[in-house]
Nucleic acid binder design. Structure first.
Length: 576
RNA sequence: CGGGGCGUAGCGCAGUCUGGUAGCGCACUACACUGGGGGUGUAGUGGUCGUAGGUUCAAAUCCUGCCGUCCCGACCA
């Protein structure tokens, strides 16, 4: 490609509304432009990168018996009514009407459509297992689109769905996909980790996320330093403290604590450590529609944070988790939220986190405004109805597999695989005839990759103060040819043209900075900003000495390559 | 959904408090000089000041509504 015929839309200054580095660099390098909140146009340079990611994903899916299809973005509401998600999904599902006032939505995911297709097309167990995938535009009306392409409303996703006669078959394909995903992200050149994950709104049982480790990530990932355990913090189990609970040695006392509400304030006021305190959260319990919600108390050690996902999974707790209002608390306990404790809560069930349950002689609210209790002990002073794991793990906690301690890092979720089971096949009655001529509901898996998000994640992980440093596998171009004073030197022009033609003919993707009179500094800055992995600078001075200057984007130093060996040198570097 | 910021040329911003000719830098066009890391000069192109209404002789500027956009929060217990 010749730069003179290519839109190199680089910006000198960082657009004011870009917060994270990948968003800034994608705008500055001229990969994307914003159309509206969460909606982006891919410019030529950016689209080349996106297509390369797609190509790698496609190759690995094809290599594992994935069959590519392409489903519509617009989907009829009837299918979503059938699966129950028309009600469940909430405002993230963008609903629209056609001219006949028929309801449709823009597809945020395609379980319904693929299941509908397959129930009509696959009738026999002999056709199973089968995996179908597409690389396609998804739309999710996010509460808060942010970080550019990282959390956009419209984005490119690879979604795959597998169909099976039974769980064993699903398990096999799940493992195949797990390996395929690992190969995909390795080939792209990312530092990633597969982690145990929650299934969220897609539903199902087993699930892994693939995370690219980067500070801009929106998820916390817990790793063991002593094994390969890795899980999303949402899912990482917090083990019960070992050993016996210390014995009760203090008497319970009521202390006046005027205007001390938060754990921090309280600890400072009483000079106690947060680990010797207990906080009590009042949430709504499970209830039938129309009846008033009962209350449930969740008790945590003062320095711990409630894990909403874990709490929601308790049968006593309403899903989604909802904190009781100040008024509900006032009515039931007759105090403000800042003074609640687990003692004498009348009929409110008390669910205690494992760590909090292990405390003795602790401090908690007195259920009376302006007072706390000290020297409190379980059983002696207050009841435990249930002990459960309801907190987030912290760095330094023991690993749930018993080996090592946990470290917490930020991750960008780029892939997610699920064992769906029969959630959708049952709802949509997707069955096949099995060996015994019985109708059997198919078992399903689904597998997603945020293709456009991968591009942003790659930049988060690979950049410096000059711009992007693309992994070779997804760089928009492999090599940039930068001439010096080409309009004044026929020799330079000839050398550049020859090299450009020869390498291009061999299939190497070359960007030839052929613009007349372009200044060297500008060209080099653009080549660096756009992250092209290799470059040669060709000028009269070097030609006279029979040398060409070569530099790799990720290296600091130039190399001098003898002119007569240049082509071989570059072919060795760039031809796979 | 709650809170806050911002909206003036493609980008980055000043001007708004205290109403009176629409500004600066980058980019872009032409020419000249320069020519091994975003160079210099001269001359230019480009703006319904987000939008609707109000106050006023006069509104980018004051008032009101709306829209857009970005950030933070949604755990005092």
């Amino acid at each position: 490609m010749r730069a003179s015929k290519y839109l190199i839309a680089t910006l000198k200054e960082t657009p004011a509304d870009a917060e994270v580095i990948s968003h800034q660099l994608m705008l500055r390098a001229g990969l994307i432009r914003k159309l509206a909140s969460g909606l982006y146009t891919w410019l030529p340079m950016g689209l080349r990168v996106l297509r390369k990611v797609e190509k790698i994903v496609r190759e690995e899916m094809d290599a594992n018996d994935g069959q590519e299809v392409l489903m519509p973005v617009v989907q009829p509401s009837e299918l979503w009514e059938e699966s129950g998600r028309w009600q469940q999904y909430g405002p993230e599902l963008l609903r629209i009407e056609d001219r006949h006032q028929r309801a449709f939505c823009l597809g945020p995911t395609h379980e319904e459509v693929i299941t509908d297709l397959i129930r009509n097309e696959i009738k026999s167990y002999k056709q199973l297992p089968a995996t179908f995938y597409q690389i396609q535009t998804k739309f999710r009306d996010e509460i808060r689109p942010r970080f550019g392409i990282m959390r956009a409303r419209e984005f490119t996703m690879k979604d795959a769905y597998s169909f099976h006669l039974n769980q064993e078959s699903l398990q096999q394909t799940y493992e195949t996909m797990f390996d395929a995903y690992s190969r995909i992200f390795s080939r792209i050149g990312l530092d990633f980790r597969p982690v145990i994950a929650d299934t969220g709104s897609i539903g199902g049982s087993a699930s892994h996320e693939f995370h690219v480790l980067a500070n801009a990530g929106e998820d916390d990932i817990a790793f063991s330093d002593g094994s390969d355990f890795a899980a999303n913090v949402e899912m990482a189990e917090a083990l019960a403290p070992t050993g016996e609970r210390p014995t009760a040695s203090e008497e319970q006392q009521q202390i006046a604590t005027p205007n001390q509400h938060s754990i921090e304030e309280l600890c400072a006021f009483l000079s106690v450590d947060a680990t010797q305190t207990v906080k009590t959260l009042i949430v709504l319990g499970c209830h039938d529609e129309g009846t008033p919600a009962p209350l449930v108390a969740l008790v945590l050690r003062g320095d711990h944070q409630l894990n909403e996902i874990k709490a929601e999974k308790l049968s006593e707790v309403a899903e989604p988790l909802q904190l009781a209002s100040d008024e509900q608390i006032k009515n039931a306990i007759n105090c403000k939220p800042g003074s609640i404790g687990p003692c004498a809560l009348n009929n409110i069930p008390v669910i205690v986190d494992r760590s909090a349950a292990h405390l003795a002689n602790f401090v908690c609210g007195a259920n009376k405004d302006g007072y706390h209790l000290s020297g409190v002990n379980w059983q002696r002073d207050c009841q435990i109805d249930q002990i459960a794991d309801i907190r987030n793990v912290l760095a330094g906690d023991p690993s749930p597999d018993g080996k090592g301690t946990l470290v917490i890092k930020r991750g960008i979720e780029v892939g997610h695989i699920f064992q769906l089971g029969t959630k959708y096949s049952e709802a949509l009655k997707a069955t096949v005839l099995d060996e015994d001529q019985k109708n059997t509901v198919m078992t399903m898996g689904c597998y997603g990759i945020g293709v456009s998000r991968v591009v942003a994640a790659a930049i988060e992980q690979n950049h410096d103060d000059k711009g992007i440093i693309w992994p070779e596998a997804i760089a928009p171009f492999q090599l940039a040819i930068v001439p010096i004073n080409m309009h004044k030197s026929e020799a330079v022009r000839e050398q550049c043209e020859t090299l450009y033609k020869s390498l291009s003919d061999k299939g190497i993707e070359v960007l030839f900075m052929d613009e007349e009179k372009a200044r060297l500094g500008v060209m080099l800055a653009n080549v660096e900003l756009t992250g092209i992995p290799h470059r040669v600078v060709i000028g009269d001075r070097g030609l006279k000495e029979g040398k060409i200057e070569y530099k790799e984007r990720k290296q600091q130093e130039n190399e001098e390559i003898p002119l007569n060996k240049l082509e071989t040198f570059l072919e060795n570097k760039l031809l796979c």
